[in-house]
Amino acid sequence: MSSTFDLSEVSLRELNRSLHEASSGTFRITNPRGAHAVAAGIDADIAVEVDGSVGYYCAGMHQVGSVTVNGNASTGLAENIMSGTVRITGSATMSAGATGNGGLLVIEGNAGARCGISMKGVDIVVGGNVGHMSAFMAQAGNLVVLGDADADLGDSIYEANLFVRGSVASLGTDCVEKEVRLEHIETLKRLLEAAGMSAEPGDFKRYGSARQLYNFHVDDIDAEVQQKVAK
């Protein structure tokens, strides 16, 4: 089954209700004209294609199936994605893939600030550059950047892996460069293939947590003094 929704004629509510009620099929959305929350909350194995650029939170909390945007996306593209695939052929502004738990987000162009912020298991592949504070507090998953990363990459990062082929303007607090092992090459191969992007895995550097912020550092001078007295 294939259906087309012209957003110049139907409301956002009507569109999303139809997508939520569907259990299979393909859907084409035309004239999005920067609409917000397009195809948010999809929880069935359907394929959605959007012709044009979208506003905030396109494919928000995406759970299964695929959403493809032939255009650009504004803030919060595929925020909190759980599974499935979201792809845009253009660029995304802020917080793409924020808090994503799983699935694959492909941005063929650039991503703005805070790409992959607080990511919790999602895989994100960016064909171009990522903006400042990307992967801030990133907890799990992989961020692959074929271009450059702006300032404070991976600030306060937990266990996510960040792979950057180009330059990194600066690393954030507690983020360090790490060894690229065979397992990481395999991860890169898999993600590049899934994203349909051509790059040599060996050209990427890996960044992750120095784990210095995981616990508070607590002194106990009193105990030390008591031990000395006891001796």
Partner: peptide
């Protein structure tokens, strides 16, 4: 680990964004 949660939302930065965020949440739960 000693978990310290984020103090600001990751995908909206002010009341105009919040308005759109509320619409998104309403859309997701129909």
């Amino acid at each position: 680990i000693d978990q310290r949660s984020a103090c600001r939302h990751p995908d909206w930065t002010g009341p105009d964004d919040l308005e759109i965020k509320i619409i998104e949440l309403r859309e997701i739960v129909d």
